[in-house]
Design a binder for these strands. Structure first.
Length: 984
RNA sequence: GCCCAGGUGGCGGAAUUGGUAGACGCAGCAGACUCAAAAUCUGCCGUUCGCAAGGAUGUGCUGGUUCGAUUCCAGUCCUGGGCACCA
């Protein structure tokens, strides 16, 4: 029997399916392991070879843990709500449910062929009502919860209501603020709407006004990545910020816990850094500046309260609430002008033009809290309303932006840094002893910050304050293909639906264009929206991250109709032990699902507050694109030798000489030509040309040589003329043949392309479909090759060249069992050498698999098979163990050979071989011996030899003596089991 | 600008805590088998000097620590990823 991988793989895939070998149930007596891949979105493009990288890794790990005796949960499902399906529906009129269904089918078929061990009986889809019922249910839980600041956890909103009824909401100290605080009596007299309004300020999902990207021409709201340079990606229409009522997820309440708990999870440091960065915790102070020209005060947030004596002015965000109140009569005109200027500026522009300094004086002054100095109050777009208090104290000598601002508007600068400030640029250093700073003189930042805060607290003008950069997450989308909100609106107040009324089904729509006033398509179904004269449904839907924030829990108990996930299941399966996916979800999905988990934990619905114990990030597999150089067509030579314009595809004139390189003499001057392209072979010195780079398709290039016929296939535009320039000649596309530079016909030359690594994408024509690889080499080869490519977390290009080697390895393995179609394996007793090879491999594979070092594991397999081949080992005892080690990596061939040697059942139920150190012990070692650190020779020595014996033998060695050149021995370094160094 | 990761043959990449740099594979070269091809097998394969034995040199660059540095330290350059008027 030959290694017929296609036949073998199909057979075992069938076997695993019919015997349900991957189906798992709770087994209390067995340790569990939960291995999860990041939820894929079933895009229409299907899988390319980059996608399965993580899936293969998780599959190997799952099978490994199973062989090690764990009850392994390894499910797969689909994040099937989302924008692309809706976009496709908009274009083709096909219902997203239909296309999604089709895409999932393709996806599953592709996954099946690679032989993954998913328990498909647990498959879930976020767009399935039996799933989103529970997404809506959790939404209601979030809605009906608030974050208790005292206990730092989520609690039922009812607790808050009880508290308000008893004690109201009064400040711990100081005077109550109008509109914020209220007494119990006031609360009890509030109307239901007023109460709702107060509660909405505490709910974990809440409704509020927010800004969206509004595109008037398309009549719709756009996602950030649909907006390019202030214009819509489709159609290039202007996009403006528009205020609209939105739902928000109060993730900021969890900022501190999300930050703290990072210490308890096993994520890569860079991943943690990204999350820390996003949360953006900073410690500083809130400082109050009393108005000198107006009643009231301005609050600022600063991380550098130590520089308080360097404050020369204040800057408010133009949107700051106080701006209109404090502006003086004579500055009102200027301020209004500036405000209308800011309104014309998109957020993008405000962020892009860093160098242009703008601002306006309000005419108002505040008083310095310590020295009473009058400080002017400015407004400027460089201060953002959404961060801190929307106001800053400007310290020009220490902050570059403040410095530039002061300079531009001629505001005098106070120097509190002495000689460390040169008057030319700000010095933000924090190791500088302060001067000119009253009671802070002589201190550096570290001591001055607490002193400054203490002093501010004493005069009641400031306090220590922790700030977070993170914002609440927008939770509504003006779209169709998502979860409907279980919320009713009555006279502008939101009322949640009852849990028993769930699921609120997504109604069918006939078309997917937006509703009126920027609402989602659901707004068009008036009979669904309008329940009665006063009651309307919410018309937006939930974002993609709603369904994916808790799916790992549903996998534990996917068919449960009573609850989102039974306690029995969530207690047993608990955290995801290993979560594998790309870094693109570093901040979004991971933070949201961490937050949801914490809320569910706080409400006592699950017993753990972090979803993922360990996170493994797979690198991207880049596609290799073959490109060619093209002479920039807009080039005009001094002698007008050619003039081109790529936009209207016209070349007006052409003369022979291009900068002296291989001279091209083209067509007769009187030949009528209206389109020229000059392509350059990569082996030309292209540095002297002004070139652009164009892409070719993979199917027209092999080994970086362009197939000219294929390249011109389908380009039947006769008026289009392409000249392919090589070193020794050129190809003329109209004459369809090669010429040398004397214009004499010649044999075909090689036109070289060059490779560029870029994202694998259908658009780039560099997509490699795993199906093709599987047909040609088999799933086992494909799996092992993807792992062999390099460390899992590293990005690397896909290059099919190396796959042969892995395939050869499997064939070589096969020959240990079968040769010329006959079994050659035996039941003889293994020799010591054979056992040594085996146990060395057991040790290495186990270690590498456990720490996700799959590339080195594949190498170790190769080494093992090479050695066994060398030893002519065909012994079942050795080979069976090897098969078990290999089963996670190449499950089909392992299963096949496992049965060939007479075993029954699936190899997945075998016991993992146990490493025995006695087989790999050596009694001597060939030591590298260096003289003065330079390796000179190797000497074999017994491992039991004493240092004295070793020294004696080594110093007698003729090579060593030669290199010692009779110099006296200074030091003798002997590291047992490692090396020897003779120092003279 | 800030934060993180990484620079090793023609290529993908290996190298425990500082201890033989280049495992394994690809590509290449030479050979065996074959009418031939495929498949398979054997040998060579960083650079350089040398017929060889053997030497010199070599992990982005410049220094340092050490008997010994791809590994540790300082500086520097480059590449990739993330964040960015964030006070």
């Amino acid at each position: 029997m030959e290694y017929n991988f296609n036949e073998i793989e199909a057979r075992w895939q069938q076997f695993w399916e019919t015997h349900n070998v991957y189906q798992v149930e709770i087994q209390q007596d067995k340790p569990k392991c939960y291995v999860l891949d990041m939820f894929p979105y079933p895009s229409g493009a299907g899988l390319h070879v980059g996608h399965p990288l993580g899936y293969i890794a998780s599959d190997i790990y799952s099978r490994y843990k199973r062989l090690k005796g764990f009850n392994v949960l390894h499910p797969m499902g689909f994040d099937s709500f989302g924008l692309p399906a809706e976009q496709y529906a908009l274009e083709t009129g096909q219902h997203p449910a239909t296309t999604t269904e089709k895409n999932i089918k393709t996806f599953k078929e592709q996954l099946r062929k690679i032989g993954f061990c998913y328990d498909w009986s647990r498959e879930i889809r976020t767009s399935d009502p039996s799933y989103y019922q529970w997404t809506q249910w959790i939404f209601l839980k979030l809605y009906n919860s608030y974050f208790c600041n005292t206990q730092q956890k989520a609690r039922p909103i009812q607790d808050l209501i009880s508290k308000y009824e008893l004690r109201g909401a009064m400040p711990a100290q100081g005077d109550p603020v109008e509109g914020v605080h209220f007494t119990a009596e006031e609360w009890n007299n509030f109307s239901p709407e007023q109460k709702e309004e107060k509660l909405m300020r505490r709910r974990l999902v809440y409704s509020a006004e927010g800004e969206v990207n509004w595109c008037e021409a398309l009549g719709t709201v756009l996602a950030n990545d649909e907006v390019v340079n202030g214009l819509s990606e489709r159609g290039g229409h202007p996009v403006v910020k528009k205020k609209m009522r939105q739902w928000y997820l109060r993730i900021t309440a969890y900022a501190e816990r999300l930050l703290q708990c990072l210490d308890t999870v096993d994520f890569s440091e860079s991943m943690k850094d990204m999350q820390r960065n996003w949360i953006g915790k900073s410690e500083g102070a809130e400082v109050e500046f009393s108005g000198a020209t107006f009643e009231g005060k301005i609050k600022v947030y600063t991380t550098r309260p130590d520089t308080i004596f360097g404050v020369d002015f204040m800057v408010l965000a133009p949107e700051h609430a106080l701006v209109t109140d404090i502006t003086t009569a004579d500055q009102r005109g200027a301020v209004n002008d500036y405000l209308s200027y800011v309104k014309t500026r998109s957020e993008r522009e405000r962020m892009a033009e860093v160098k242009q300094i703008t601002g306006c004086f309000t005419g108002a002054y505040v008083l310095h809290p310590f020295n009473g100095k009058k400080l002017p109050v400015w407004i400027s777009e460089y201060v953002l309303a959404g961060y801190g208090t929307g106001a800053i104290m400007a310290v020009p000598c220490g902050d570059q932006r403040d410095f530039s601002f002061a300079r531009y508007f001629n505001i005098p600068i106070t120097n509190i840094l002495g000689s460390h400030f040169n008057g030319e640029e700000a010095n933000p250093g924090d190791q500088i002893e302060l001067v000119n700073s009253d009671f802070l003189n002589g201190y550096t930042k570290k001591e001055a910050v607490p002193l400054a805060i203490e002093a501010l607290e004493k005069i009641n003008q400031g306090k220590r304050k922790v700030n977070y950069k993170m914002r609440d997450a927008g939770f509504s989308r003006q779209r169709y293909w998502g979860e409907p909100f279980p919320v009713l609106w009555k006279n502008g107040t939101a009322y949640p639906m009852n849990e028993s009324e769930l699921p609120l089904l997504l109604p069918h729509v006939d078309h997917y264009s937006p509703g009126p006033e920027g609402q989602g398509p659901l707004a068009n179904i008036t009979e669904w929206v309008n329940i009665d004269a006063h009651t309307k449904r919410e018309t937006s839907t939930m974002p993609g991250f709603a369904g994916s924030s808790w799916y790992f829990l549903r996998f534990m108990d996917p068919q449960n109709k009573e609850t989102f996930c039974s306690t029995e299941a969530s207690d047993y399966w608990n955290q995801v032990d290993v979560y594998i996916g790309g870094t693109e979800h570093a901040v979004g999905h991971l933070l949201y699902s961490r937050m949801w988990t914490k809320v569910l934990f706080d409400l006592g619905l699950i017993q753990h507050d972090e979803p993922y114990k360990k996170l493994v990030n797979q690198g991207m597999i880049g596609g290799v694109s073959e490109k060619i150089y093209r002479i920039g067509l807009n080039q005009v030579e001094e002698d007008n030798s050619y003039v081109g314009n790529s936009s209207n595809n016209m070349i007006i004139k052409w003369k022979s000489d291009i900068n002296g390189l291989p001279i091209v003499l083209f067509p007769d001057e009187n030949e009528e030509i209206n389109y020229y392209l000059f392509n350059l072979s990569a082996d030309l010195d292209i540095s002297q040309y002004e070139t652009s780079v164009i892409r070719t398709s993979l199917n027209m290039v092999s080994e970086s040589i362009l197939n000219i016929e294929k390249y011109f296939e389908g380009k039947n535009n006769k008026s289009r003329y392409e000249i392919m320039l090589c070193k020794d000649g050129y190809y003329d596309s109209r004459r369809e043949r090669w010429f040398d530079y004397e214009k004499k016909p010649i044999e075909p030359l090689k036109f070289m392309t060059f490779q560029v690594q870029e994202k694998m994408s259908k658009r780039y024509g560099n997509v490699v479909n795993p199906d093709d690889v599987v047909i040609k080499y088999g799933a086992d080869t494909f799996r092992m090759y993807e792992m062999f490519l390099g460390p899992i977390e590293q990005s690397k290009p896909w290059d099919t060249k190396g796959i042969e080697g892995v395939h050869r390895f499997l064939k070589k393995l096969w020959r240990l069992f079968m040769e010329n179609g006959k079994s050659v394996w035996t039941t003889e007793t293994p020799t010591r050498d054979e056992l040594k090879t085996l146990h060395k491999t057991i040790h290495k594979i186990e270690q590498d698999t456990a720490q996700f070092s799959f590339n080195t594991a594949v190498s170790a397999f190769m080494v093992c098979v090479n050695e066994l081949t060398e030893l002519k080992c065909h012994k079942k005892e050795i080979l069976d163990s090897l098969l078990i080690l290999l089963a996670p990596y190449a499950p089909h061939i392992a299963e096949e050979l496992w049965h060939q040697t007479g075993n029954t059942g699936t190899i997945l139920d075998a016991a993992y071989p146990v490493f025995d150190a006695q087989y790999v012990q050596e009694d001597s070692k060939v030591y590298p011996v260096s003289v003065n650190g330079k390796l000179r020779t190797n000497i074999e020595l017994s491992l039991t030899a004493s240092p004295e014996e070793v020294q004696e033998v080594v110093l007698k060695d003729s090579v060593i003596q030669k290199w010692m050149e009779e110099k006296p021995l200074k030091k003798f370094i002997f590291i047992p089991g490692k090396m020897i160094n003779v120092v003279v």
